[in-house]
Structure formats: C-alpha cells, structure tokens
C-alpha cells in the first residue's frame, strides 16, 4: 500500500500542474492577508490586533481551497483524460487499492497546501499584527486549532475533488461543478441560509478555524463538531470515489 501511495504522489509531483495550483493557492492567501491587514479595524472588518481579527487573518491560509480541489479532480480525471488509468489498473487490478492510495495521496497533497498556506500566513500576519501595535498573545490560544483546521480543510477539499473527478470522469465537468459549488452555492448558503450552510463542508471548515459567523447569523458548529463533520464528508466522498471507480469499464 505504501508503494502505491508513493507512486500516486510521484504522479502528482512529476507534472507541473501541482506547482501552478500551489502558486495560485498561495496567491489567493496573499491577497486575503493583504486585504485583511490593510482594511483591519475599518467598518465591518475585525481588527487584527484582536482575537477574532487575528483568527480570520491566519485563516487566510485556506483561501485557496478551490485549487486543492482542482488538484484532487486531476488526480482522477487526468488518468482518464490521458488514459494512464490503463497502466494504473494493469499494475494494480484491485481497484479499491488504487482508490485508497489516491485518497491517501490527496490527503498528503492537501496537507502540503495547508502547511504552505499557514507558513505564508505566519510570515505576513506576524509582522502585520505587530505593525498595527497588537500583541501575538491574542492568537496564542487559537493558532494550533486554526492550523489544524486549515490543513484538514485543504486535505478534505482535495479528497472532495478526487470524489467529484471519480463521479464525473471528465476534468472540465468536475472543475466546473466544483468551482460552482465552492464559490457560488456554498458561499451563498453559508451567508443566506446559515442554518443549512453550517452543515456544509465550507461551514464545517469555518467552525474548525473558529471564525466568527457573519453578524446576526446562526453560529457555526463547535470546533470539534466541525472536525467530525469534515471527517464524515471525507468518508462519504471516499465511498463515492471508490464505488464509481471500481465499476467503470476501461475501454
């Protein structure tokens, strides 16, 4: 099994797409960091010298969730598009093992995106908070949870991408559906229908970060509830990914 995971990671890191996606993810994080630092304390934006603002600032590390999702879709649809799935199943005819290896590899890739995002956040957020005259002690109690949340969310969205890719098989379709969900539907539901939105992957991720809900909105789940919910989603996506992949004829 270890060698299959290693092979899946080798597949990801021997293409250039992964570096492009990582760069875009970090770019989005940087934009979010800059916006929150510059607008800090202005109307509707919490001050980064206070706990809530600092949490939101560090949570910028998860701004590029969509790019983790795209890498996840590519792990499966890239194999269909370029028919390398043939090689993969010839070497490992027990397809559930391939899916398990891909799930593990996606979790690793997503975690790498999360760690990279957190490092970038730290590099920008720490001087930003100090320049604004704040103290790093405001984040002391929360930084570990935000970090774990970001890494878990990145890993989950990569797995979500894998599941979507497995379900649809087509790269463009998987990306369109996924981006539509992340940027449009989920955002709308989390803001407009928070009683539903808090139960979605996006809402669960917000709960783990400990980000304050929109003013007047329904509070997110407690952090442990969000974590549990994310794990549940990962499980469902894993089942979707394996059942769709195991049954498909490779013609």
């Amino acid at each position: 099994m270890t060698r299959l995971v290693k092979a899946e990671l080798l597949k990801v890191f021997t293409t250039r797409m992964v570096w492009g996606m990582l760069a875009l993810s970090l770019g989005f994080t940087l934009i979010s960091l800059a916006a929150l630092s510059i607008l800090s304390g202005q109307e509707g934006v919490p001050s980064i010298t206070e706990s809530a603002g600092a949490i939101a600032l560090f949570s910028s590390a998860a701004s590029g969730l969509v790019f983790a999702f795209i890498i996840g879709t590519l792990v499966m649809t890239g194999e269909y598009r370029f028919q390398t799935i043939t090689h993969t199943f010839l070497i490992t005819p027990r397809r559930e093992r391939v899916v398990a290896a891909k799930l593990a590899a996606c979790a690793v890739v997503g975690a790498i995106f999360g760690v990279a995002g957190m490092l970038l956040s730290a590099v920008v957020a720490v001087p930003a908070i100090l320049i604004k005259g704040g103290s790093l002690s405001v984040i002391d109690g929360d930084i570990a949870r935000v970090g774990v949340g970001v890494i878990a969310a990145m890993a989950l969205y990569t797995i979500l991408g894998l599941a979507m890719g497995s379900l649809l098989g087509n790269q463009i379709a998987a990306m369109v559906v996924g981006i539509g969900w992340i940027y449009v539907l989920e955002n709308l539901l989390v803001v407009l229908l928070p009683s539903v939105g808090r139960w979605l992957p996006g809402g669960a991720a917000q709960a783990v970060f400990g980000v304050a809900p929109p003013i007047g909105g329904t509070p997110y789940l407690p952090a442990w509830g969000g974590a549990l919910l994310l794990a549940g989603y990962a499980l469902v996506f894993a089942v979707v990914a394996s059942t769709t992949t195991i049954r498909r004829d490779i013609t």
Binding site: L10, T14, T15, F82, Q83, T84, T86, H87, I91
Partner: peptide, 28 residues
Amino acid sequence: VGAVLEATSFHPGRTARNHLRVLCVSAG
C-alpha cells in the same frame, strides 16, 4: 504480463523516465 494497449496513454507533461518510474514504484 506486459501489455501495450494504446500509444496515447501517457501524461504529456511527464518525462519518459518519470512515466516508467511511476510504473516501477507502483509495482515495487
């Protein structure tokens, strides 16, 4: 069994050596 199925089943961005390395690593 060594199978040669279609000539197009490669990721265009991967080098020839890396393509085969992936096969070797997956197969141990």
